[in-house]
Design a binder for these strands. Structure first.
Lengths: 210, 210
DNA sequence: TTGTCTATTGGTCGCACATCCAATAGCGTG
DNA sequence: CACGCTATTGGATGTGCGACCAATAGACAA
């Protein structure tokens, strides 16, 4: 009558296991924060013993970096899906900006905040954050460049405009963390306004933030 | 011939000791981060036993919150000194923006990053962060309002403009943490540009960012 | 000087963590 | 079916942390 579950041990091939671990850690990172990625915590979530995580990631920091990379690039893919490549750039940009609101994006901007701060103490993570920043910058720059080539946008330098956009989005995200007391539309809409002004679009061309 | 220092115990009055503790913690927060504020660490810095810190701050989180508050309000006072109240608003704003660059301000924006993130887990800190945000917002809003009254600025809503400025500054600060690879002037100067545009000033009226 | 009050000590306790390793058991191969 | 490889376990080790408390020794008043 033992009510405890048998510790039936499951054996998987290393790549699969590793991927599973990273995915779990990424999920934890998004939901609860990078500091919640702990050997024990991940192990428990996977129904496995802590030693195993340690075996795949002898140094914990490496797992944290990997998890952040997975989460960030996953979210980027969702914000700027390759599948949209055929759509007009204005439309893609409008979608992108539209997705930078709501609880879902709050989670993401919290993760960035988290990562930027933590990367102060963890070199491996810092490196990953830098790489992801570059990816996001390039992704958005490519979108803007498309728009310029198709004549939808007019801007002296798509790369600079992209960075400016990301800076504003980061600022909004950081503020959203603590302060959400009746933010005026002129604040919420900063990214839209910046994009329209910086790309020679008429006001409202990108849709209005909710 | 004992080369070890005598543990001569010094007795101070509670308010002074408490102030000393907060000041030390604030210094640590600015230089190394809020998570380095630890009973042992602060005690060592003060040449005192850890138990003493614990005595003044039975709950560690309270000290962290207090330290952040001290650091943030101290820095605000330096960025917007009351002593400048007689100067024209343009000049005060130009100074303020001028001080938002360089290693000194980097330290501060790192602290804000740190605090915003950590406040996710520590209610007492979150409350303090909210209070400080309000103070910064109000300080800057007052400056802008002065400018409007004296006819130096033209803006539909000083409060909104102030928030927008802070958002951009936060975004720049967050980005500066990891990425500083040749940031174009059009990025570095975002705050200046936003202020000039939002306040009806001619370009360059606030000085150029270095 | 003596006595009292209390700021300060010195230690203890329990917790959560990363890291390491010898033993074990799943699974594919022969 | 038996064997060997290795993914996985269980447990030990050491560190740093907040919290707690009885004992101690400054400082000040009587």
């Amino acid at each position: 009558m033992s009510s405890s579950v048998q510790p039936k041990r499951v054996r998987k091939n290393p790549e699969a296991r590793r991927a599973e671990i990273v995915a779990t850690a990424a999920r934890i990172a998004l939901a609860e924060g990078l500091e919640c990625i702990t050997m024990r915590r991940v192990a428990e979530e996977l129904g496995v013993r802590p030693g195993l995580i340690s075996h795949y990631f002898p140094v914990a920091e490496e797992l944290v970096a990997e998890a952040f990379g997975a989460a960030a690039s996953g979210e980027l893919a969702e914000l700027l899906p390759d599948a949209d490549a055929h759509l007009p750039a204005v439309r893609r940009l409008a979608r992108f900006l539209g997705r930078t609101e709501g609880p879902r994006y709050d989670e993401l901007s919290r993760l960035w905040l988290n990562a930027r701060h933590l990367s102060r103490f963890r070199p491996a993570l810092r490196e990953r954050v830098g790489r992801q920043e570059a990816l996001w910058r390039e992704g958005l720059t490519a979108l803007l460049r498309d728009g310029v080539e198709s004549g939808e946008f007019r801007t002296p330098d798509p790369h600079v405009t992209a960075i400016q956009l990301l800076v504003v989005l980061d600022g909004l995200g950081a503020h959203a963390n603590t302060d959400r007391t009746g933010r005026p539309g002129a604040v919420t809409g900063m990214a839209h306004a910046l994009a329209e002004r910086g790309l020679g679009l008429p006001a409202g061309a990108l849709g209005t933030p909710h």
